[in-house]
Amino acid sequence: MSEVPVVSLEGVSKSFNGVEVLRDIHLEVARGEVVSVLGASGSGKSTMLRCINWLEQPDRGTVKINGEHIGVDAQGKQMSVRALASLRARTGMVFQSFNLWPHLTVLQNVIEAPVHVKRIPRSRAVEEALALLDKVGMGHKRDAYPYTLSGGQKQRVAIARALAMAPEVLLFDEPTSALDPELVGEVLAVMRALSLDGYTMVVVTHEMEFARAVSDQVVFLDKGKLIERAPPERFFTAPESERVQRFLATHR
């Protein structure tokens, strides 16, 4: 474990209007690792994920991407908008509600950030985007606008969009929660393939089967505290905390 973790949260705390949603979170994600984040609604899972790319600003604690401070530097000074943006570009995020840009086609959605943030040549961006769209099985829809797609298709495009920035870590915020049950499988299949490709992933999810089959580590949040971290086998068969046992009993 001498390698620098891709994501590290140290002592991260956050309150909304006086309500503590994250309390002293410590989390490290190693390169190539898939970490599933479980917990009841309102346990702070999404907020924790959003702290990783600073879409939510923690009140205390430090967040590092590949050893580099994000949001505030080592001295606690707020970093510039530009510096923050370029760090964020090294993470890829997939949202529950897809959040595709409706004015752009599927292909344009995928090349938008590579061309206008990373400033790579358009022709190269298109080439890479088409390969990614094929990878998520959406190559045939390259010229479609998002409103014509199903939820599962939108989410697969959103995954391709996140991949297009060649991120060091992929952050999934309940990627299947807004999908019709029969569409969940196609998205999970793509995510499973990514894990096999060696992507580093943090996945906030309610999909127990996925967490069990795909992740290297499962962490559990309860009322803003990270109370359990274990490999999936142990997490699902012999959890230490009584809270996790109760959670698993109701989610089987």
Partner: peptide, 24 residues
């Protein structure tokens, strides 16, 4: 969500406004 996704991709400032926000 759209603006949030843009920020997550590293968009900021005028580029975010011109490319993502204004067209919509």
């Amino acid at each position: 969500g759209g603006v949030e996704a843009a920020r997550a991709c590293g968009f900021h400032g005028f580029t975010l406004f011109r490319r993502i926000l204004l067209p919509q």
